[in-house]
Structures are given as structure tokens and as C-alpha cells.
């Protein structure tokens, strides 16, 4: 009798110890699964399996202490009935947590990108304001305009609710208007992926800067400098400019060539007064429509 009681006590102690170990294993596996961005599934499964074993051990302990007969079959059915539910619940929970965490992380990154662009613009602005040299002020203002072209692409993209594309008519028009260039912009309903839009924005910024000295009167009637971005065929776009009154500065030409290469196209200059860059559309754009439609 004493041996039997001693055996039961030992069994109870073993079950209690294994319950504690399984519970700890479940906790650490679940925590590891939550912490990981990748390779979380094995820890999820391990955690669920250990959790089931923990429940079985606890049921054994309860059975020995309180002789709960209804627990007899718990072990028999636990893996079959409960494991799938535990797995589905745990997976949904960790996925939702990870998604929310990723969204917060991306939001924070966007916040930092926009703030950093603003700081760069501000730095150029205050340096220009502090400079005694008219030439230095002018060059810093040009540099700031180029940075603002990049910043505007990010801002329009992130604030539009459609963070992968930029509506090019609003974007390029705002660039042209921001320094009162008098350049007429035609981009219709074309939208481009943000990285391509930013490259086109830098092309436009260079041309708008170059056109500042051009006569702008008559732009509305077609007589002034004109910047057009349109789809020219399946999967191809072109950005063109007419109305350069003087040859492009060497720096501007190099910038345009660099941006053309980045867009996967080539710069074509015609008679020194117009130019075009044809490039493949990286996708995500809307069909081009005339501005008047």
C-alpha cells in the first residue's frame, strides 16, 4: 500500500515537473516565433506541440489529485481535436501581430525619409540665405530645387493613399509652378511607379531650371517652353521638352544623361532647342490621355 502511494506520489511529481517544463517550452517557443520576422513557423509548431503536452500533463495531475474521470479521454483526443485549433489560432495571432509590427516599421521609415528630405532642403535653404555670394545663392537654390523634386515625389506618393505610384500631371505641374518657370506641362492621366516618377521629376527639374531664362509669354497658346510626358506604345513612355532658348549647361546635360540611363532610355537632343528621352514603363501606370480630355 505504501509502495503504491509512493508510486502515485512519484508519478504526480513527474507530471507536475513535466507540466512546468512543457509550459516553459511553450512560452519560449511562442516568444521566439513572435520575435522572428522569418523562420517563425517551426517555433510556432514546436510551441503548439509543447502546449498540448503541457495540457495533457496538467490533466494527468488533476486526474490524480481530484480523480476527474472525465479527463480520462483528454489525452486520447487532445492531439487530434485540439492541435489544429491551437495551430490555426497561434498562426493567425502571430501573423496579425507581425503584420501590424511591419506596418508600424514601414510607417516609421516613411516618416524618417520625409523628415530627412525636409532637413536636406532646409539645410540648403539656410546656407543660401547665409551666403554673401549671389552665384552661391543661385547654385544652392538650384540644388534645393532638385532635392525638392525628389521630396515632392515621395510626398505625393505617400500621401495619396496609393504609395506605389505618382500622378505625373500634378507632380510635374507643381514643380513648374513652384519656381514660376512658365513651362507648360502635359502629362494627362499618366501615373508612374514612384522610383521612375522621381527620375522623371529630376529630368523635369533640370529642364525647368534651364527654361527659366526662356521667354514664357505665350506658353498657354503653345509659344513657350513645353514639357510633355506620354505613353508612346505598349510599355514605353517618352518625356520631351521643346523651347530651350540656349544650349544646356554641361552639368544639366550630364544630369539628363544620367537620369535617362536610370530610366533605361537615352537622351536625344535635336537642334539644341528640344530633347526627348524614351524609356520603358516599369509598370503600374495608367493609360495616357490628352490633358484636355
Amino acid at each position: 500500500m505504501a509502495e503504491k502511494e509512493s508510486g502515485m506520489s512519484l508519478s504526480l511529481a513527474v507530471n507536475l515537473a513535466s507540466s512546468a517544463l512543457y509550459a516553459a517550452g511553450t512560452f519560449f517557443s511562442a516568444r521566439e516565433a513572435m520575435r522572428r520576422r522569418f523562420f517563425a513557423a517551426p517555433f510556432l509548431f514546436l510551441g503548439a506541440a509543447l502546449g498540448i503536452e503541457c495540457l495533457v500533463s496538467v490533466s494527468n495531475v488533476l486526474e490524480r489529485i481530484a480523480a476527474f474521470s472525465w479527463l480520462d479521454r483528454f489525452e486520447e483526443y487532445a492531439e487530434v481535436l485540439i492541435l489544429p485549433f491551437v495551430l490555426v489560432f497561434a498562426y493567425s495571432w502571430t501573423s496579425a501581430e507581425r503584420l501590424a509590427s511591419n506596418e508600424a516599421y514601414v510607417g516609421e521609415l516613411h516618416h524618417r525619409v520625409k523628415n530627412s528630405l525636409q532637413i536636406v532642403e532646409s539645410m540648403l535653404f539656410v546656407q543660401a540665405a547665409a551666403s554673401d555670394s549671389e552665384e552661391a545663392r543661385s547654385e544652392l537654390a538650384e540644388a534645393r530645387f532638385r532635392v525638392s523634386a525628389l521630396g515632392a515625389a515621395e510626398r505625393l506618393s505617400l500621401d495619396s493613399g496609393e504609395p506605389r505610384t505618382v500622378g505625373m500631371q500634378a507632380y510635374l505641374s507643381s514643380l513648374a509652378e513652384s519656381i514660376g518657370s512658365g513651362v507648360l506641362v502635359e502629362a494627362g492621366g499618366l501615373a508612374l511607379p514612384t522610383s521612375q516618377a522621381a527620375s522623371c521629376g529630376l529630368v523635369a527639374a533640370e529642364l525647368i531650371l534651364a527654361a527659366r531664362g526662356s521667354p514664357s509669354s505665350g506658353a498657354e497658346s503653345g509659344g513657350g517652353p513645353r514639357l510633355a510626358l506620354r505613353r508612346i506604345g505598349e510599355g514605353r513612355c517618352a518625356i520631351s521638352f521643346e523651347g530651350l532658348s540656349s544650349p544646356l549647361p554641361a552639368f544639366s546635360e550630364e544630369m539628363l544623361k544620367a537620369m535617362a540611363r536610370k530610366l533605361g532610355g537615352e537622351l536625344r537632343l535635336a537642334e539644341g532647342t528640344s530633347l526627348a528621352i524614351e524609356f520603358p514603363d516599369a509598370g503600374g501606370g495608367e493609360p495616357w490621355r490628352p490633358a484636355s480630355s
Binding site: 520625409k114 523628415n115 528630405l117 525636409q118 515632392a152 510626398r155 507643381s174 513652384s178
Partner: peptide
């Protein structure tokens, strides 16, 4: 107003 802000 969203940063980077447009001066105008």
C-alpha cells in the same frame, strides 16, 4: 501640411 513642405 506634409513634410517635405512646398513653400508656396
Amino acid at each position: 501640411i506634409s513634410k517635405p513642405y512646398e513653400e508656396g
